[in-house]
Nucleic acid binder design. Structure first.
Lengths: 338, 338
DNA sequence: CCACACTCTGACACCGGTGTCATAATGTGG
DNA sequence: CCACATTATGACACCGGTGTCAGAGTGTGG
């Protein structure tokens, strides 16, 4: 079975390959008759154009790379889903590249990626969207990129984020309004800018409601379920025990819930628990977790869409947006019983 | 900033581009002096070879496509993780392409994918690994592919699966050995071959232990949490209520657990619950779910590894393997209390 | 000192498309 | 019927690498 190229089609149809190319790309200035003829040969020969050759000629791969390093599988799939939506809309495809921020050599890793696969652009998700080093490297290499949920201020590059600080403020305020005054907090991974932002929101809510911040109520997590379990132990062992726990994401909140349940504590009667992200697990467990829903898909979709616009037209103004996070109230939070 | 190509390097280093190409690919027959010189110019000019041009010349893209349509995010990420491991080992990259088996036009969708991105091969995960139509299409197009968890018997194509029937048998037997005789079953999505296999394992275990199969104990799910919740309602409403539920995956099992807990039923005292897959949620909830662990990453890793071998050398014998699934006992199953 | 093998290098075609430009064919208005 | 604009088509270079092959340079054994 011989390969069918544009040349075979051209010969077979009795036209030049440029004309075949015109038909392929729906260019004008092809007579209807010729177009028909060529299209018929496409069918007959079962011709599929070679995207690589096209890519070489146009200096495009039509592939976007997606960088992430995140323990949350639901976050990753939401990112992928938003990115794919934008990609497919513009006939791009998505190549995934999970890697470690603190790996021995992030830059070398990315350099190798670019050697093995030409990418027209890259979407950076946390913590990469906050890596000054990586951003400098991409700029130097003239690689287009878009930042998702990045805290870095850089007017030159595309950025779509959500308001983490405000979300954390609102959920903390929600607990305060219920009557909680002793609210523990579990921090996220220190490499993620969201960690600091959520912590700030928590502190601001306390301050604005005249509740003294107590550092012994703060546990250091890293967004993983496991770290949540460790933090849960430390918090539930406190005496007096806080009446509420706000974990920086739902997995850690789920870990608190699990340990509380194991210890025969009733949630939310004995202790209220709040999370962040509105991951699927938040509604897959009982009681469902009060949390903050972030438009992860939408952030990524917008970021990739703008990235593709920028690739197609360098003149596109740099897009920067902040989307709203939204409080979702479920059964895991209530008035303190005492 | 001008583009640095192999030509600029060649001119700058005072050698032919073929020699530069030799250095790039670590080919023999380059004098150490020349090699050094060229390598130095690489650094000086900050040269990165163009993978697209290389791809065109070699007729390779070094990209594997991954097809899936699965509601379980943990399954997807495990698949991706296994596939990536194999890809990176061989300097390949992974392009993801979720799509719908029952979408209006699967074949057109894939055809379009191949028009926008040349893939050296594809990994098919369920339910695509069971689609005769897709497999016929890929064969016709001469696209290499590997099947993961496929029930189709096709000695011509790579296949790595795990023993679902046996896993379902063992977990059912585990329940029977605990003393359960009334065991409800929640089926998975009808498009997935695993659904039928797990169901068969359940039935075989009942039969071999002389327990009559009762069709009213079987609910139709589709692997989604939501379908599990519906099935849970049907099962928990039964009178008499079965003493155990075996759901075809962990998400559906989690839904049963949640509803049972909401109804004040104690798990496992009042009702035992078992799942399948050993998804993260199985250990993130309380009580933890007894389930079957499948080597999803390993299956995919092997499939992709063999796929790449086949791409590099058509003579490679077709690899077919069946890996073992393993029973994981957690707190959600125990002796029936009555 | 010569025949022969082996190492090193470059010229050139080629991969399968797209962009530019010249030219042929057709249409239009005066 | 002609000058001129417009449409349709193809020749050819080019994208940035790799494969083939010829030839120059070097080494070895008889």
């Amino acid at each position: 079975m011989k390969k069918v190229t544009i040349n075979s089609v051209a010969t077979y149809a009795g036209v030049s390959k440029k004309t075949v190319s015109r038909v392929l790309n729906n260019e004008p200035n092809v007579s209807p008759a010729t177009r028909e003829k060529v299209l018929k040969v496409f069918k007959e020969l079962d011709y599929t154009p070679n995207p690589i050759a096209r890519g070489l000629a146009r200096n495009r791969s039509f592939i976007i790379g997606c960088l992430y390093d995140n323990p949350s599988k639901s976050y990753i799939t939401r990112v992928q889903s938003g990115a794919l939506e934008a990609c497919h809309k513009h006939n791009y495809n998505l190549l995934i590249h999970p890697c470690e921020l603190r790996g021995e050599a992030l830059i070398e890793n990315i350099e190798h990626l670019l050697t093995t696969s030409r990418l027209d652009g890259m979407v950076l998700t946390p913590p990469f969207s906050d890596s000054e080093e990586l951003i400098a490297f991409l700029k130097k290499k003239n690689i287009h990129f878009a930042r998702v949920a990045s805290a870095i201020d850089d007017a030159e590059s595309i950025s779509v984020r959500s308001n983490d600080e405000q979300g954390a403020y609102e959920i903390t305020e929600h607990l305060i309004n219920l009557g909680h005054t002793s609210i523990a907090f579990i921090k996220g991974h220190p490499d993620h800018s969201a960690t600091e932002q959520r912590f700030t929101g928590y502190q601001r809510a306390l301050a604005e409601h005249n509740i003294a911040f107590k550092s012994h109520l703060v546990a250091e997590g890293n967004f993983s379920y496991h770290s949540g379990a460790d933090s849960a132990k430390a918090i539930l062992d406190l005496n007096p025990r806080p009446s509420a726990v706000f974990a920086s994401n739902d997995y850690m909140a789920a870990a608190v819930l699990k340990l509380a349940t194991q210890r025969q504590l009733k949630v939310p009667e004995d202790i209220s628990i709040a999370g962040f992200d509105n991951a699927p697990i938040a509604r897959h467990i009982w009681p469902g977790l009060t949390t903050i829903a972030q438009p992860v898909e939408e952030m990524t979709r917008q970021a990739v869409e703008q990235l593709i616009l920028q690739i197609s037209d360098e003149q596109t103004p740099v897009y920067q947006a902040t989307l709203e996070a939204k409080l979702i109230t479920r059964e895991s939070t209530a008035k303190p019983s005492c």
